Amino acid sequence: MLGAIAGDIIGSVFEARNWRNEAPHKSKDFPLFDPKSKFTDDSVLTIALADAILHQRDYAEVMREYYQRYTKVGFGKAFRVWGATPDAPAYNSWGNGSAMRISPVGYAFDSLEAVLVNARRYSEPTHNHPEGVKGAQAVASVIYLARKGADKAELKRFVEREFGYDLSRTLDDIRPDYAFNESCQQTVPEAITAFLEANDFEDTIRNAISLGGDSDTLACIAGSMAEAFYGGVPAHIAAPCLALLDEPLRNVTQAFRTTYHLNA
């Protein structure tokens, strides 16, 4: 899950610029950290899920608690309404929020079947649209299979076969016309491609951000898969990201990593 947090923090600098279409960043050349680097709702909801799993609590309840503590970190309008309304029903979202927060599931459950069931379970409090569920299941499955030793060719075939995503395009094919998009349908395949084309964890993050879209979420999703595949997050990325979390978020992150034996 630290890979997701790292992608979110590194991508946070570019997300608003790309959303406003202010010369979207389309290059892999950028400093990893900036004085404006920060965690956003992507990290908050990822850590909320880790918290819910660790303490076997209702995820909807935990998400609302985290929303009340971190209202100013970039939550979308529909989520803000849901988070502020006790017992509000799911709002049939196909947004990429389900995929950005799902990485703890890929580590906490030890069969593919359990990962798929729980990816659905933790998506549906908000993202109960089939595309929202599918996006989360695809990402959690890649994380699970990657940590079990699947190679990239196997992961690509699995995603194409089981979820029907088109992974035939390269980043160079995608990048010229790609724009800010918050749907699972046009975020998850692109994030998976950024991971598949990468040479290592850092290259994965650079690939994702270079697409010029919803940068923090693209890098969050791609980073979550890269952490599982490459066996951790490099220290020169992990340490600054942990330092940028506040103490409660950092404590939950470390507790989850200790419980599930994740490397730095």
Score class of each variant (00 low, 15 high):
M1R: 10
G3P: 08
I5M: 10
G7F: 02
D8K: 13
I9M: 09
I10Y: 01
I10N: 01
S12R: 13
V13D: 01
A16Y: 07
N18F: 01
W19A: 13
P24T: 11
H25S: 04
H25D: 00
H25M: 06
L32Q: 07
D34N: 15
K38W: 00
T40N: 08
D41S: 06
A48I: 02
A48E: 01
H55P: 08
H55S: 11
Q56T: 12
R57H: 07
Y59F: 14
Y59K: 10
A60L: 08
M63Y: 03
Y66T: 01
R69H: 10
G83P: 05
G83D: 00
P89C: 07
Y91L: 07
S93E: 09
W94I: 02
G95N: 04
N96Q: 12
I102H: 00
P104F: 01
P104Y: 02
G106C: 05
G106I: 07
Y107H: 12
Y107F: 13
Y107R: 04
S111G: 05
S111P: 07
L112M: 12
A114G: 02
L116K: 12
E124M: 13
T126W: 00
H127F: 01
H129S: 08
H129F: 03
P130C: 06
P130W: 04
P130K: 07
K134I: 06
K134T: 12
K134W: 00
V139K: 02
A140D: 09
G149S: 11
D151A: 08
R157Y: 00
V159T: 06
R161C: 00
F163E: 02
G164A: 05
G164V: 04
D166K: 11
D173K: 11
I174V: 13
D177W: 06
D177T: 14
Y178T: 11
E182H: 03
S183T: 15
Q186D: 13
T187P: 06
E190V: 10
I192H: 03
A194C: 11
A194S: 15
L196S: 08
A198I: 05
N199G: 15
D203K: 13
N207M: 05
N207F: 01
A208C: 05
A208T: 04
I209A: 00
D214K: 02
C220S: 14
C220P: 01
A222I: 11
A222H: 05
S224M: 09
M225V: 09
M225P: 06
A226R: 12
E227A: 12
V233E: 01
A235T: 14
A239K: 15
A243F: 04
A243V: 03
L244Y: 03
L244C: 08
L245S: 05
D246L: 11
E247G: 03
E247K: 15
P248A: 10
P248Q: 12
L249Y: 03
R250P: 03
N251D: 13
R257M: 15
R257V: 01
L262A: 07
A264T: 15
A264H: 11
